[in-house]
C-alpha cells in the first residue's frame, strides 16, 4: 500500500505562492483559512530559503493524539483526515501541530471558532467520494479521481513534491546527488546512508 507524503525542496522553491493559490481555488477554501502557505526563512538575507507548509500527514500525528472527540483519523494510505461532524472546534489540534496546519474559520462575533479545517491531501473526507457534502466540507477528492494534490501538481519548479513516499523520496535523493548539496539535512544518513564524497572539480574543467 502506497503511503502519501509531501516533500518541500527548499533549493527549488521560488516563493511564488502558486501552491497556496492552487489549494484555495481547488477546494473553494473560505476567506481567512489557509490550508497551505509559503514560509521564508531569513527573508531578505542573501541565501534565504522558502518552503511550502501544510499538514504533513504525520505517521504519528500529534493532532490525532490530543483530539478529545477522536475526530482525526489516518487512512490506509497514511493521509490524516478529520470528521467535521464530530469536531467541536476546541483548538487542541492547533496547539499540538508543529506545522500550524489546523485552521479555524473566524467569521462570527466574539471570536467564534468554527470547525477545524486543514489540508486533506486532496483526499476529501469521510463522506462518499465525489458527493456534494464531501466537497462542501473538505473540498475536491483528487486522489479518488486518480490525481495528486493540486498544490504539488501546480508547482512550477516542482519544489513541492507530493505522492507515494517511496517515489518522491527517490526523486529527491536523485536531485540531491545531482546537485551535490542537501545531504546535510537531519535524517539523511538514516534514510539513504552517507553520500560518497566527490573530489572537488578542477578549476576550468567542464562538469
Amino acid at each position: 500500500m502506497a503511503r502519501m507524503k509531501f516533500l518541500a525542496d527548499a533549493e527549488r522553491c521560488i516563493e511564488c505562492n502558486g501552491c497556496v493559490v492552487a489549494c484555495k481555488q481547488e477546494h473553494d477554501v473560505p476567506w481567512g483559512v489557509n490550508r497551505r502557505r509559503v514560509v521564508t526563512l531569513n527573508d531578505g538575507v542573501p541565501g534565504e530559503k522558502s518552503i511550502s507548509v501544510a499538514c504533513m500527514h504525520c505517521s504519528d500525528a500529534p493532532c490525532k493524539a490530543v483530539c478529545p472527540v477522536d475526530c482525526i483519523y489516518t487512512t490506509s494510505e497514511g493521509v490524516v483526515l478529520h470528521d467535521k461532524d464530530l469536531c467541536i472546534g476546541c483548538g487542541y489540534c492547533f496547539y499540538a501541530c508543529p506545522f500550524g496546519a489546523p485552521q479555524f474559520p473566524q467569521d462570527g462575533a466574539f471570536g467564534l471558532r468554527g470547525k477545524m479545517d486543514k489540508c486533506t491531501f486532496c483526499a476529501g473526507g469521510p463522506e462518499p467520494d465525489f458527493s456534494e457534502a464531501e466537497f462542501r466540507k473538505y473540498g475536491r477528492n483528487r486522489l479518488a479521481e486518480g490525481k495528486l494534490p493540486a498544490c504539488a501538481e501546480m508547482c512550477s519548479t516542482k519544489a513541492l513534491l507530493g505522492g507515494d513516499a517511496d517515489v518522491i523520496a527517490d526523486i529527491y535523493r536523485d536531485r540531491v546527488l545531482k546537485r551535490g548539496k542537501g545531504a546535510e539535512v537531519w535524517g539523511w544518513g538514516t534514510a539513504y546512508g552517507r553520500p560518497e564524497k566527490k573530489p572537488a572539480a578542477q578549476p576550468g574543467a567542464k562538469s
Binding site: 487512512t75 494510505e77 470528521d83 461532524d85 464530530l86 469521510p126 477528492n141 479518488a144
Partner: peptide, 15 residues
C-alpha cells in the same frame, strides 16, 4: 455514528 463514518472511508477509492 463514529464507526459508521469510518466504514465509509474504507470503501473510498483513494490513491
Amino acid at each position: 455514528t463514529q464507526i459508521k463514518k469510518k466504514e465509509a472511508v474504507s470503501g473510498s477509492k483513494g490513491y
